[in-house]
Amino acid sequence: MNNPQRLIAWLFPDRRPEREQAREREFIAEANSLKTLSVSDRGRLSIDPEDLREQMVASREQLKHLVYCEIALH
């Protein structure tokens, strides 16, 4: 952290719960891992839909052990 960031952090501490701060850090890390995420000079975000789809498919594969699906055959 540089000095202005330290001063701002000291003057305005983040009072949110640690869990919420951790979720925000996780979201930022995931967003940074997207290959085609770009931000315009006016703050507009854009991303290649295919990149987003690939990320969702990979996440679904990682979490599929949490879902139990029973198929009833008649």
Results as ranks from 00 to 15, higher is better:
residue 2 N to D: 15
residue 2 N to Y: 11
residue 3 N to L: 09
residue 4 P to I: 00
residue 7 L to D: 08
residue 8 I to N: 08
residue 11 L to C: 04
residue 11 L to N: 01
residue 13 P to E: 05
residue 13 P to N: 07
residue 15 R to H: 15
residue 16 R to N: 10
residue 17 P to F: 02
residue 17 P to E: 04
residue 18 E to P: 02
residue 19 R to L: 01
residue 19 R to D: 04
residue 20 E to T: 13
residue 20 E to N: 15
residue 20 E to G: 11
residue 21 Q to S: 09
residue 21 Q to I: 15
residue 22 A to G: 00
residue 22 A to S: 04
residue 22 A to H: 02
residue 22 A to R: 03
residue 23 R to K: 15
residue 24 E to T: 14
residue 25 R to C: 00
residue 26 E to L: 09
residue 26 E to R: 08
residue 29 A to D: 15
residue 29 A to I: 13
residue 30 E to I: 04
residue 30 E to D: 10
residue 31 A to Y: 04
residue 31 A to Q: 08
residue 31 A to L: 15
residue 32 N to E: 15
residue 33 S to D: 14
residue 34 L to T: 01
residue 34 L to P: 00
residue 34 L to A: 01
residue 36 T to E: 04
residue 36 T to H: 11
residue 37 L to M: 13
residue 37 L to T: 12
residue 38 S to L: 04
residue 39 V to S: 03
residue 39 V to K: 03
residue 41 D to H: 12
residue 41 D to T: 14
residue 42 R to P: 01
residue 43 G to N: 01
residue 45 L to H: 12
residue 45 L to V: 15
residue 45 L to W: 05
residue 46 S to P: 06
residue 46 S to I: 14
residue 47 I to M: 06
residue 47 I to A: 07
residue 49 P to E: 02
residue 49 P to I: 01
residue 50 E to A: 06
residue 50 E to Q: 08
residue 52 L to W: 14
residue 52 L to K: 11
residue 53 R to A: 10
residue 53 R to F: 14
residue 54 E to Q: 08
residue 54 E to F: 09
residue 55 Q to A: 11
residue 56 M to N: 14
residue 56 M to L: 12
residue 57 V to N: 09
residue 58 A to M: 03
residue 59 S to H: 13
residue 60 R to K: 13
residue 61 E to W: 01
residue 61 E to M: 13
residue 61 E to A: 14
residue 63 L to P: 00
residue 63 L to K: 06
residue 64 K to T: 03
residue 65 H to A: 04
residue 67 V to P: 02
residue 67 V to N: 05
residue 69 C to H: 12
residue 70 E to Y: 03
residue 70 E to N: 12
residue 70 E to H: 06
residue 71 I to A: 05
residue 71 I to H: 07
residue 72 A to C: 07
residue 73 L to A: 13
